[in-house]
Design a protein around this nucleic acid. Structure first.
Length: 571
DNA sequence: GCCGTTTTCGGCCCGACTGTTTTCAGTCG
């Protein structure tokens, strides 16, 4: 998948173009970057199928950008990018990560002081060479130095699972202030994106000053980027930024809509407003300068002729069109899950006993819990063999007798060997309620062989689902090469479900793949891959992932009752 | 560079905050 590589080049070209003057070319390049990032299919595949013509069918991609994509696919380079880079050979990625430095200032610093990278920048700033430049002063220089320090340790985007609890802590603290009338999370965290750049919080208050004063002095704040009447922005020691906006009651809905994004979703909604001779901004929807909506989000959408769109769908990937035609999916709800289907006990590499796990699951309100310990030759996971699985089944019978109100089901997460056969013999698998197959080794296999490996496993009648199908680890590992369309075809034929692994670092399947699976008629299960009792709460992330993939309750099998869940897999 | 029941040319979402300015450009989201 070259989409991300190409997207990056477009982002860089956008910055380079921006150096000359603010131009709509850079807007188009940036947009192309975002389109490529969220594209369901491989741009190369699209090109191979229908060339430039096919690429141009993607909204936002025209002749010029399609030609550049073609160039990259054919040569691995884009000439225009090389030319731009030659003109101003700077480490754009690093330099733009310094807060307050944009394309124009970077170009200026290169021309005046030959600043090419963070090191150069730090040197000239320390030497006091920046303060005297046109449009730069003492304060700019000081800010640059501070921002360099922060940029050095900046880790970019954060896992949703890591940032959500922090955001909730901040919100709970601000909620306590007497001046806070209403508070809500916004931004990509509200959209539940798998990674989040910073935390956005929205507050209704008639006394913004007090709120802002409190906010910038909160525990852990190491830098105040900005502090104004309606907007403040800070960096916390833990490495993330938090933006706070305060609005009046009558603008809460429009502000929430606006600050939730995504950017492309907002641009699309504003365009719809303009077509209807309305104006949409964070203060409301206006007709001839008279506010006709603003207090709540539902009214914002209604006033411009749209059905309400859930935050997880707001990515401008078809939700606006679906809303216009009243064809939005009825998304799976956060309380629809009836059982955990991926759980490791202390029989393999989990840390809790079967009984402990069952009690927690019961406490959550689940009807069932499937124990799926590793069946694997890998020593590190302490995998079970056929004999131990049979023993464990007896143990589960015992615990089931002891605990009421929840049914513990017998399962395994069985390794799919390189040739597509399974680590456990069919005679044992046939006795289990639920078998989830997984690839845990040989990740580097080529595309064809990996596809064959997984499809062969799915052809085994005892395999009910495939765990973390792509094998990716967010920010660490790409995942293995395989032909997803082929996997879907076989999954559909064999009635094999695909897992949405809800672990914060996996979230595997990706949202775009979930959508493909649903469109193909393939069923899903959501599992948190429990290894200790704290994992259960990651179910929220898995459901969010499903929602971003347009999944409805009927698409996810562990929304079924115990009986129906078991019935589905009886073949 | 993209796009079209406003246009094949002339638009392109819109506003807050900062710093260095005497009215605004750059940056950010």
């Amino acid at each position: 998948m070259k989409n991300l590589e190409i997207a990056k080049l477009f982002y860089l070209m956008a910055e380079f173009v921006e150096m000359e003057k603010t131009s709509f070319i850079s807007i188009a390049y940036n947009k192309a970057g975002r389109i490529l990032e969220s594209l369901e299919r491989d741009a190369e595949e699209i090109y191979n199928k229908g060339g430039i013509k096919e690429l141009k069918k993607i909204p936002g991609i025209g002749e010029g950008i399609a030609r550049k994509i073609e160039e990259y696919i054919k040569t691995g380079e884009i000439k225009r990018y090389l030319e731009l880079k030659k003109k101003c050979p700077v480490d754009l990625e690093k330099l733009t990560s310094v807060e307050g430095l944009g394309a124009k200032r970077i170009k200026f610093l290169y021309e005046e002081l030959k600043v090419k990278n963070l090191n150069d920048l730090e040197k000239v700033a320390k030497a006091g060479k920046i303060a005297g430049l046109d449009n730069f002063g003492e304060k700019s220089e000081k800010n640059i130095l501070q921002s360099i320090e922060i940029a050095k340790v900046d880790k970019g985007r954060f896992l949703l699972g890591k940032i959500l609890p922090r955001a909730r802590n901040i919100i709970n603290e601000l909620k306590e202030l007497p001046e806070t009338e209403k508070i809500n999370i916004a931004g990509s965290a509200r959209r539940m994106k798998e990674t989040v750049g910073d935390i956005d919080i929205l507050i209704v208050s008639s006394n913004p000053e007090k709120i802002m004063d409190y906010f910038v002095k909160m525990k852990g704040v190491i830098k105040i980027w900005a502090k104004g009447e309606t907007k403040s922005s800070v960096r916390f020691r833990t490495g993330f930024d938090c933006d706070l906006r305060v609005v009046k009651k009558e603008s809460f809905g429009s502000a929430l809509q606006y600050f939730t994004g995504s950017k492309d979703h907002n641009i699309a909604t504003r365009r719809i407003a303009i077509k209807k001779k309305l104006k949409l901004n964070e203060y409301g929807v206006y007709r001839n300068n008279k506010q006709i909506a603003g207090k709540n989000e539902e009214d914002i959408y209604k006033s411009i002729g749209l059905h309400y769109i859930e935050p997880e769908l707001r990515a401008n990937t078809g939700e606006i069109e679906a809303s216009l035609e009243n064809k939005l999916p009825k998304l799976i709800k956060y309380n629809n899950i009836k059982g955990e289907i991926h759980c490791h006990s202390d029989w393999s590499d989990g840390s809790a006993t079967i009984e402990e796990l069952a009690k927690i699951a019961k406490g959550i309100g689940y009807q069932y819990l499937v124990i799926t310990d590793h069946a694997s030759p890998l020593g590190i996971v302490h995998g079970l063999d056929g004999g131990r699985i049979l023993k464990q089944m007896k143990e589960i019978d015992k615990v089931n007798k002891k605990i009421s109100g929840i049914k513990i089901l017998k399962g395994t997460e069985v390794d799919i060997k390189a040739d597509g056969t399974l680590f456990i013999e069919d005679s044992v698998l046939s006795k289990l309620d639920f078998v989830i197959g997984a690839v845990h080794s040989g990740f580097k296999m080529d595309k064809e062989n990996m596809t064959r490996r997984i499809t062969k496993a799915m052809e085994n009648i005892h395999v009910d689902a495939i765990a973390h199908p792509s094998g990716r680890i967010i920010k660490k590992r790409e995942g293995y090469q395989f032909n997803f369309s082929e996997i879907l075809k076989v999954a559909k034929k064999t009635k094999t479900a695909l897992e949405i692994n809800a672990h914060e670092s996996r979230l595997d399947l990706r949202d775009v793949n979930i959508r493909q699976a649903i469109n193909t008629g393939v069923k899903l299960v959501i599992g948190t891959d429990v290894h200790n009792i704290n994992y259960f709460k990651m179910m929220e992330l898995g459901i969010a992932q499903a929602r971003r993939g347009w999944a409805e309750k009927k698409d996810v099998l562990n929304t079924l009752s115990t009986d129906n869940f078991l019935k589905y897999f009886k073949k």
